Structures are given as structure tokens and as C-alpha cells.
Amino acid sequence: MTGQRIVFIDVDGTILEHGSVIAPSTVTAIRTARAHGHLVYLCTGRSDGDLHPKVREIGVDGAITNGGAFITRGDDLVAAHPMPRADVGRLIAFFEGLGIQFFLQSHDGIFASPGVFALMSDFIRLRADRRAEDLHHLGLDGEDDLLDTLVTDAGERYRPVADADLDHIAKAVFVSAASDSVDRARRDLGDRFHVIPGSMPLPGGSNGEVARSGVNKGSAILEVLGLLGLPAADAVGIGDSWNDVEMFEVCGVSVAMGNADPELQARADRVTTGVLDDGVWNAFVELGLV
């Protein structure tokens, strides 16, 4: 590659592993690419208010958040596509009617249903164990008690659904003890919503993400490119999850992480190594960004 490029990079499973672990080479890759004149935008399903401080510290040119519903350029919010209030009400009724636990996401934060953390207790414990393994793999020191840290962190970051302003919700994430909840959501909500499998490695049940039809990472990338006057051919998309499909479709070059589902890897132009095995750095080197 020659000339300026713009990189759209996913967060979980691409920059971060298990919520907070970042390979040092990933930080170096992003900072070096920007120093060489390339633009880097986060492109994540997370809300802006839920971005990990370690990710913010890296430094980027902007961010697409909530799976494409919000776009920031620098510190400025330049586009917002929340769900109509009636659609949010329909989602809540669907989840509550089937006893499915869920999160609602706005630009600033996340709101949790009453029983979601009890349902996810095994996942939280598993994530703490894996974070400890990740830190050891990278030769880094971790917190003394990662499980307590995760539980405390969740209690501080997520507010009750009752506190949510339903006029500013952009996305929902659900967690279910039933294995067929993603299929059920697609059947019952597919007329107005885009439903995809979630990326939480739960020990059982199922999880998924729900957004407005037509609002996704790909649509947001096209909006950013229009604002900046850049062609899609100069865009690079890097990710690991099913909410990255539309990003892969619109970017001139798409890169799947080595830890991505093999079916998703098959949709990408290139496949790099895993998130903690210098995957971002290796991709940036191969593409001539660093």
C-alpha cells in the first residue's frame, strides 16, 4: 500500500482479549500507523461510554460505536442513529416475555436487566480465569483478584434498565439460558431488526445482538468515508466477529483475526494471527501501514 489509508478496527477480540488485555504490539502498530499519516477509527459494537480506558489511551482519530449507530470524529459526535422509542419498547417486551436477560446500549452507557449478572456468573468467572492466563502469556502482571475486579467493575459500569432514556437507545445485547434464542429473535424481530449471534463464550445457552435494520458497521463506515471524502478502496477493516461482516463488505481490504470463526475468515481478503499473538501488528506490517 502507498499513500494515506484509513483503518477501521474492531475492539473485542481484535484490540482487546477478555475485556482488558492488549498485546503491546497492538498499541505500537496503531500509534506507528498514525505517525505515518494513516487514520485509525475504532469500529466496535460497544458504546462510547463502555470503551476500556486502555483502548482510549492508545489514541485514535475517531470511533464508530454501538455497531454503527454513533460516529465520533476526535471528541465530536458527528452522527447518531438511535432506535425509535417504539422499537425499543418492542425489544423490551420481547425479552421480558421470554424471560431473556438483556442489556440496552446508548451512546454514553449500558443498562442491564435485573437478572443478567446472575445468568452470566459462570461466564464472569471463566473470563477472570482467562484474563489471568492472557496476562501470563504476555508476561504481564495482573490484578490480585480478577474475579472481584470484574464483578465490582460490572456493578459500576452498568445501570438498571429502569434508568435508561428509551429515546437514546441504539442497540441491545441479550443473554439466554435457551440455546435457540438467536433463531427465535430472528423469527420474531427480523421485520425491523438485524439479529446476529453474540461473541460471549458462555458455557451454555445463547447470546446475540440486535440493531435497527440498515444500521451496521458497514453503513457507518460509508458515512465516515463520505464525511472525509475518502474512497472505500483506501479503507482497511480488521475484526473477528459476525458484526464485522458489513465492515468487510465495504472496505477495500478486509482482515480477519486468527481467533475469528473460520466461516468469517473465509469472508475476509486476508487472515492474520490471533489477538494476543501480534495479530494487529502483523496485519499492519503486511499491509505496509507500519
Rank of each mutant, 00 (worst) to 15 (best):
A283P: 07
A93E: 14
Y158L: 15
G237Q: 00
M83F: 11
D50C: 08
S213A: 13
G229Y: 06
A260P: 05
G97P: 04
I15Q: 09
I196D: 01
V271N: 04
R157K: 13
G226A: 09
G99Y: 07
W242Y: 14
E286T: 11
E133M: 06
V40W: 02
A35P: 05
E156K: 13
H194Q: 15
V245L: 11
L276Y: 09
V210Y: 00
G115W: 09
T72D: 05
G237K: 00
L91V: 02
F123D: 12
G237N: 01
P114E: 03
G279L: 10
V255H: 02
I196H: 06
I92G: 07
C251A: 03
F284C: 11
L287Y: 11
I15F: 06
P197V: 00
S25C: 12
V285Y: 08
R125E: 15
V151K: 12
D141L: 08
P24Y: 11
A235R: 01
D153P: 01
A118F: 10
A79K: 12
G59Y: 05
F70C: 09
A260I: 01
A178I: 01
F123T: 12
F117D: 06
A118T: 15
P114M: 10
A86K: 04
V175S: 11
G208W: 10
S254Y: 08
A23Q: 15
F95M: 13
L42T: 00
G37W: 03
L202W: 03
D244W: 00
D12W: 06
A79M: 14
A33H: 01
E57G: 13
S241I: 02
G205S: 05
R130L: 12
S179K: 06
M200C: 14
G99E: 07
D144C: 04
I100Q: 07
E286V: 05
H36D: 07
E156W: 07
P114I: 11
D10C: 00
